[in-house]
Simulated assay, not measured.
Amino acid sequence: MRTEKVVFAFFIVLALTLNFGFFLGDFSNVHHHNVYELFAAIVVNLIATVLKFGDRTHLGSVFLATSLVAVLQLIVAALIWGIHSATAGAEMDADTFSTIVSLSGGALLANIISVVLLVAETVNLRR
């Protein structure tokens, strides 16, 4: 067993599960989505992105691209949440929050692609 592959796979799968946990729930209900879970999803996705920088293969480039997409969408979602909280000061409206959750859904799709690629790469490995 190679430790670096275990760590790599761990962070890819953790990024997917944290993002899924934030995404799951009613789009317009703020109480179904935790800001700390979004923060954790961003941090773990950033760690997964850093781990993908060393791979010089074509598949590694696709891994990096999917990770960059996920990080970008999650950061934009957090920025929208932060800007709205700072300027509006009141309860989050359903339109703004559905945008935040939709961006998280796009990041979730990118994370799913990463996990599918990880599984495909693992299946193709020959001993």
Results as ranks from 00 to 15, higher is better:
16 L>H: 07
83 I>K: 07
15 A>L: 06
98 S>P: 15
103 L>M: 09
56 R>G: 11
91 E>D: 13
69 V>M: 13
119 V>I: 10
103 L>P: 05
109 L>Q: 12
30 V>E: 09
27 F>Q: 15
60 G>M: 12
32 H>W: 13
90 A>L: 14
86 A>E: 09
119 V>M: 08
51 L>N: 00
107 A>D: 08
12 I>D: 02
115 V>G: 00
33 H>M: 02
54 G>Y: 05
19 N>R: 01
125 L>C: 07
64 L>A: 02
20 F>E: 05
93 D>A: 11
48 A>P: 03
16 L>Q: 09
72 L>D: 12
53 F>C: 04
110 A>S: 12
76 V>L: 12
104 S>K: 01
74 L>P: 00
118 L>C: 01
118 L>H: 02
102 S>R: 05
33 H>R: 09
40 A>Y: 14
110 A>T: 08
85 S>E: 07
126 R>H: 12
62 V>D: 06
105 G>V: 04
100 I>F: 04
99 T>D: 14
103 L>G: 10
9 A>F: 10
118 L>G: 02
52 K>R: 14
56 R>V: 09
27 F>C: 05
74 L>G: 10
31 H>Y: 13
21 G>A: 12
10 F>C: 06
98 S>E: 15
105 G>H: 06
68 L>S: 08
63 F>C: 01
75 I>C: 14
33 H>T: 03
97 F>P: 06
18 L>R: 08
53 F>A: 05
35 V>L: 13
110 A>R: 00
84 H>Y: 15
97 F>C: 03
53 F>N: 03
44 V>P: 00
125 L>H: 11
57 T>I: 01
31 H>N: 14
95 D>Y: 15
127 R>L: 13
64 L>K: 09
22 F>G: 01
87 T>H: 12
101 V>I: 11
33 H>C: 00
21 G>C: 03
64 L>C: 06
109 L>N: 04
58 H>P: 13
124 N>C: 02
74 L>S: 04
23 F>K: 00
42 I>F: 01
32 H>P: 05
118 L>A: 03
10 F>Q: 07
122 T>A: 14
54 G>A: 09
100 I>K: 10
65 A>D: 08
116 V>M: 07
59 L>F: 06
99 T>C: 14
34 N>F: 11
109 L>F: 08
127 R>F: 07
10 F>E: 07
61 S>P: 00
80 I>R: 07
62 V>G: 01
117 L>N: 13
39 F>S: 10
103 L>C: 04
84 H>A: 11
43 V>R: 03
108 L>M: 09
41 A>V: 06
117 L>W: 11
24 L>Y: 09
70 A>Q: 00
13 V>Q: 08
78 A>P: 10
86 A>L: 11
73 Q>T: 09
79 L>K: 02
106 G>E: 10
